[in-house]
Design a protein around this nucleic acid. Structure first.
Length: 281
DNA sequence: TCATCACCTGGAGA
DNA sequence: ATCTCCAGGTGAT
């Protein structure tokens, strides 16, 4: 069992995994499904319904993971620079909707969309005189119209989110089943939902369904692979990542970074975004 | 099979 | 103020 002292909240929250967190004075407050987590640094839970070890993946064998991904020297360096950055195990439905909303959008915008969705459909929670709203369940959202979703600022994603909600409510998507399936099968199942392609499916798998070999490849990750690993991951000229190229690249990535490639991606992503002074939450 | 392109919206930069 | 550009992609042509 890992000590919570090894978690760096600031790095963890500001690494692009979650959107509904905010810093209030010394504390961080965040929404995960129907739970409100309030935590302060050094790591101490002020409030949460569920045990923190689940959300912060304290069941992971961190020394083993760091040792394995550290075989790559750049990842090793990033892991030391951002020591305490952890993957989180998010509420799957929230994660799924969040990343569908992330399509061609910025972190600030994604956060705004999701906040409006929670305010409109979630339950109010009060904590120390402040109001928060939980992330609505698929059932709660079953009657949300496209117009409702548009009013939350989802834009062209509204129709995807509507389909995604339906997929869960009809049982076409079952997160508990996906957790049990192997990576490839779960990936294909998620991709049957409109608005979910390779990158978004990988985010859902990595951040909420325990698939640590997921390695979401977005424009940043692509840039990273080309910049630091041109020899290993030469993505044959073209800029657009076709279905085939993505699968091929993922295969090479797992061969190179290993079974915890998702952790490697998180450190590299954090490293490069910080280097380019991109904003977080 | 692959490359292009439109897509809602709001925030940042000119 | 007003405008343009672009943002952790995806689906349709």
């Amino acid at each position: 069992m890992q000590s919570t002292a090894t978690i760096n909240l600031n790095f963890t929250i500001n690494s692009g995994q979650v959107f509904l967190w905010e810093k209030i004075g010394e504390k961080w407050a965040g929404i995960n499904g129907n739970d409100l987590l309030v935590i302060k640094e050094p790591f101490q839970i002020i409030s949460s319904k569920k045990p923190a070890r689940h959300f912060f993946r304290l069941d992971d064998n961190q020394p083993r993971i760091l040792s394995r991904i550290g075989r790559d020297s750049l990842v090793g360096t990033a892991a030391r620079q951002f020591s305490g950055l952890r993957l989180m195990r998010q509420d799957p439905f929230q994660c799924y909707i969040s990343f569908i909303c992330s399509s061609n959008s910025s972190i600030q915008n994604i956060r705004n969309m999701l906040t409006r969705l929670c305010t409109k459909f979630g339950d109010k929670i009060e904590f120390e005189n402040r109001q928060f709203f939980t992330f609505p369940s698929a059932k709660r959202l079953s009657n949300a119209t496209t117009k409702d979703l548009l009013s939350c600022g989802l834009g062209f994603r509204a129709k995807y989110v509507k389909d995604a909600i339906r997929a869960v409510n009809t049982g076409k998507i079952e997160f508990e089943s996906l957790k049990k399936e192997d990576y490839g099968t779960a990936l294909e199942t998620l991709k049957t939902v409109k608005g979910v392609g390779n990158k978004i499916a990988d985010c859902i798998l990595l951040f909420s369904l325990d698939k640590l070999e997921s390695f979401p490849i977005d424009r940043w990750t692509q840039r990273i692979l080309q910049k630091y690993y041109p020899k290993i991951f030469y993505s044959s000229g073209g800029k657009s990542l076709t279905e085939k190229k993505y699968a091929n690249l993922h295969k090479k990535v797992v061969e190179y970074f290993g079974p915890y490639a998702g952790y490697s991606q998180q450190f590299l992503f954090k490293l490069e975004r910080d280097l380019n002074k991109k904003n977080w939450l």
